[in-house]
């Protein structure tokens, strides 16, 4: 399968006097993948995903998004139609004075016809459960609803890839669970999902896990394989997930098979 997103020997620094923020990044992501990116504070996760929609340009190397080079200024608009991004703090991407205005902002700017905008908005609100809020001003929404509104603005653009930058960090447990259910739904419909998170436990949602450390990729593979190796987490200065911690205990007593039976 042709990768929908590929980074080849990518290096990034913000200034030639500064150390490299990302080094030797090679990754090819297939259409329909769900990739979870974890790493300690400052490991380069956020810079990494900002390369994927052209928000940042690599210092060296090549980024290809849906067959287009992310360094080609003429492709910027086309790339952003294909790649949506949900920021950590939803309030940073809310621009409209009502839910309706905010949701339609992107389509309005691209000059979509009125009825097309209306039908796409309606569809997205139905999926997200915002249909009765369309006239509400965003500042009166709860944290979880604001997050949904930010996602609505991204979904109406019908992107092939959605990047999430720590989407659950401001949410309570229930809203976070609902958000992941929504992401699973989008994934089911064929969207490629890329999530950066601080929550190691969230890695089990995806089919692929990328662990970053000091600007490089330390692990790229199945989350279920990573669970068996607590040393990778320690190398990346992360606390291993609960399952891995329990495995380590069980291993002292040759009880892995027992543990698997409980899991």
């Amino acid at each position: 399968m042709k990768p929908v997103l590929s980074l080849t020997d990518v290096w990034l620094r913000y200034d030639s006097h500064q150390p490299w923020v990302l080094r030797e990044i090679n990754i090819h992501i297939d259409e329909g993948d769900w990739v979870t990116i974890i790493g300690a504070n400052g490991s380069g996760k956020s810079s990494f995903i900002r390369l994927m929609n052209g928000l940042l340009q690599p210092t060296k190397g090549e980024v290809i998004v849906c067959g287009m080079s992310a360094s080609d200024p003429e492709k910027f608009i086309d790339i952003r139609k294909e790649v949506g991004m949900v920021f950590q703090n939803a309030e940073n991407q809310i621009v409209g004075i009502t839910v309706e205005e905010d949701t339609s902002f992107g389509l309005d700017n691209l000059g979509f016809p009125r009825d097309e905008i209306a039908s796409r908005c309606q569809e997205v609100w139905n999926v997200l459960g915002l249909h009765d809020k369309q006239d509400s001003p965003p500042h009166l929404l709860s944290g979880g609803e604001k997050q949904k509104l930010a996602i609505a603005g991204v979904l109406v653009m019908q992107p092939r890839i959605i990047l999430f930058d720590e989407p659950a960090s401001m949410l309570d447990a229930k809203s976070a669970q609902q958000l992941y259910a929504l992401m699973a739904d989008l994934h089911q419909k064929g969207c490629t999902i890329i999530v950066v998170t601080q929550e190691v436990e969230d890695m089990f949602h995806g089919n692929r896990l990328v662990m970053m450390h000091e600007g490089g990729i330390r692990y790229d593979g199945s989350p279920l394989e990573a669970v068996k190796q607590s040393s990778i987490f320690q190398d990346c200065r992360l606390r291993p997930p609960f399952r891995t911690r329990m495995r380590d205990i069980a291993a002292n007593w040759d009880m892995e098979s027992w543990l698997e039976s409980v899991e």
């Binding site: 790493g39 300690a40 504070n41 960090s169 401001m170 601080q198 190691v200 992360l238 606390r239």
Partner: peptide
């Protein structure tokens, strides 16, 4: 501990 990584939280 909001917004911090797992070791920093601990």
């Amino acid at each position: 501990t909001a917004g911090l990584d797992s070791l920093e939280r601990l």
